[in-house]
């Protein structure tokens, strides 16, 4: 995933200008622009936390996206140095995602987290998807066609909205600023608090040659409509799918169920 592009995507959808965000977190807008264009590294964890606050996002999400070590973890390791030995053991064994899930399950069982997770959480991606909204091996020549096809399926799940209206909204947003997040993934969307969030997943039989932040042709779309209270968080979650392994797996999926399983898996990896 291209962190800069994802950051810009979130910023544009939050309706915050580059200058305003730079001011809020105390950096120059030139620096922020370089980050968004991928000419500079992802910011430090502290700055990421500041950005998250400014955009009203859960801080851990941005830190995940930037593949940085969370300040929480850093602080914990300072307090309890022996814990770093445990992390070292895990790293040495090169535990896979599935194995980590088992460790996680063990932790849950042995040491239940204090104070259950606050409030109604934002829905997970796989909850927004459904087999009929997974379109596999779409072949077309234009991004617009792919969006239209996704809109067709989304309209069936969004009462009161016509496919044409949805497609028009998404295309309009796409025209304002492309939603590619790197590694051949784009997240075209039409956010709106009043509409229950639904998503459609489209994998492409032939990559589409459209402009993307990292110049990898488009292979997969996650199309989002609505969003409820925290639409940005959904977008950030969608961006997490943009890793080479996940994209390759999803593009090879031959049944909607298989693709959904893969999305669920990614969601669970990040807890």
């Amino acid at each position: 995933m291209h962190f800069g592009a994802t950051l810009r995507l979130l910023r544009v959808d939050a309706g915050v200008s580059l200058r305003a965000l730079a001011q809020k977190i105390g950096v120059s807008s030139a620096y922020l622009s370089r980050v968004e264009n991928g000419h500079d590294q992802a910011p430090t964890p502290d700055r990421l936390m500041a950005i998250a606050r400014a955009l009203d996002l859960p801080p851990t999400l941005l830190i995940d996206l930037a593949q940085r070590v969370s300040p929480f973890v850093a602080r914990y390791l300072e307090d309890v140095p022996s814990a770093s030995y445990l992390f070292l053991e895990i790293a040495r064994r090169k535990l896979s995602a599935a194995q980590l899930a088992r460790v996680h399950a063990f932790l849950e069982a042995e040491f239940p987290a204090r104070g259950a997770t606050a409030g109604p959480a934002t829905p997970r991606l796989h909850e927004l998807l459904a087999p009929e909204r997974v379109i596999l091996k779409l072949s077309c020549s234009y991004l617009g066609d792919a969006i239209d096809v996704a809109a067709v399926r989304l309209a069936n799940a969004a009462p009161g909205l016509s496919a044409a209206a949805i497609a028009a909204e998404i295309r309009e947003r796409e025209r304002e600023s492309p939603t590619g997040v790197g590694h051949g993934v784009a997240v075209p969307h039409a956010l709106g608090a009043s509409v229950q969030p639904v998503a459609a997943l489209v994998t492409l039989a032939r990559p589409l040659p459209v402009a993307t932040p990292d110049d990898i042709p488009l292979q997969m779309l996650l199309v989002l409509v609505g969003g409820g209270r925290s639409p940005l968080e959904l977008l950030a979650r969608a961006a997490r799918l943009a890793t080479p392994a996940t994209v390759a797996d999803l593009c090879q999926a031959s049944t909607p169920e298989a693709a959904l399983g893969r999305v669920r898996h990614v969601e669970s990896e990040f807890g």
Binding site: L136, L138, S139, C140, D145, D148, S162, A163
Partner: peptide, 23 residues
């Protein structure tokens, strides 16, 4: 001609919808 193809379990419904969205 702009080609499109995808997997569909309900061809009739998808044809109608694509026709609608493409107007």
């Amino acid at each position: 001609v702009r080609p499109m193809s995808f997997v569909s379990g309900e061809p009739a419904r998808d044809i109608c919808s694509v026709a609608e969205v493409k107007d």
